[in-house]
Amino acid sequence: MKSTLIQAGGNREPATPVAMIRQAWNNRALIVTLTRRDIASRYRGSALGMLWSILNPLLMLAIYTFVFSQVFRMRWGAGAASSPMDFALMLFAGMLGFTFFADSVNRAPGLILSSPNLVKKIVFPLEIQAFVVLGSGLFQAGISLLVLLVAFVLAKGEAPHWTAILLPLTFLPLCLLVLGLTWILASLGVFVRDIGQLVGHLVTMTMFLSPLFYPVTAIPESFRHLFYLNPMTFLMGEIRKVLIIGEQPAWGALSLFTLAMFVFASAGFWWFQRTRRGFADVL
């Protein structure tokens, strides 16, 4: 494996941030086509087909509402969300971001392994597969968002907060995080097959170590700073702000976080481009 990585390091594929953006723009039509095919393939052969993309988040919301409002009778806090239904909405808003993150990252290690025929096609831009995973995940997140907004209207009896239009800005750093991780894990998954198993466990750990089922205020102050090392902690809070609470995001922190995630995505793209030449030798 070491010799393969050394050989891959000599790759002359463009690996700059500008090249990353250019690849997405120049191949946008191909990305859209592959994304549509990827979405359709998830439900091909099932009796309900694409209807599952709506039923899945509906079932999740129904289960969360029942479990947390009738079984656990939990509250998010005494502030903006204090009823069981509010708890379900806050939980589902957190799941909106985490499910997108988890589904994309779990697919990443097998991304290249599942399409070895594309590796041998010199002209095919392998790096755009990360954008396909991103687009497919955003489609599912969009459906879940519609379900959440309808549930919000039914539960609150009012229109969603105007701040909901700011959701794309809170999702932008999450998308960059997913892109960076996808490129890194897709590359490592070729050389180290155990990565796929490890990532599944790490994603599960991340779920419980993120303020998904509980607010940040429930974490003891002595450990709270450690939770903020997890990028999902900040992102979940910003998503809940704009969707459920009706507050604007923390613009300064969000801007810095987005910049950091752009650097991370660029690093992931650089790693993928520098190791891709070794894919054919391993596969």
Rank of each mutant, 00 (worst) to 15 (best):
F139D: 09
V105D: 08
L134F: 12
G97A: 12
F98N: 11
D86N: 06
R28Q: 04
W76H: 07
M85H: 02
L5G: 14
D103L: 03
A15M: 09
D38T: 09
Q70D: 05
D86F: 00
A15E: 09
D38H: 14
A93K: 02
L89I: 07
N56F: 00
A47S: 04
A102G: 06
T33I: 05
N106D: 13
N56A: 07
L55W: 02
R73T: 13
V71L: 13
E13D: 15
F72K: 08
V133Y: 04
L96N: 02
Y43F: 11
L61I: 03
G135H: 02
Q7A: 14
N11T: 14
I54P: 02
L30D: 04
T33G: 11
I122W: 10
A40Y: 02
L89M: 09
N26Q: 15
P14V: 03
R12C: 13
D86H: 04
L51M: 08
F100R: 05
A102D: 11
K121G: 00
Q140K: 08
A47R: 12
R28D: 06
P125A: 09
L111W: 00
D38C: 07
Q140A: 15
R28T: 02
R75E: 14
N106V: 04
L48I: 07
L55D: 01
R12T: 15
T99W: 10
N56K: 08
L91Y: 07
G135A: 06
M90V: 08
I112F: 13
V67A: 13
S115G: 00
M95S: 09
S114K: 09
L48A: 07
L111Y: 01
V105M: 11
F68E: 07
L96E: 03
A15R: 12
R75P: 12
L138I: 12
I39L: 07
Q129N: 13
Q129D: 10
W25E: 11
S115W: 00
V123N: 12
A81L: 13
V132L: 03
A40S: 10
I54L: 15
R73E: 14
A102L: 03
I128A: 06
S82Q: 14
F131G: 03
P116E: 04
K121W: 05
G135P: 06
F72E: 07
Y64S: 08
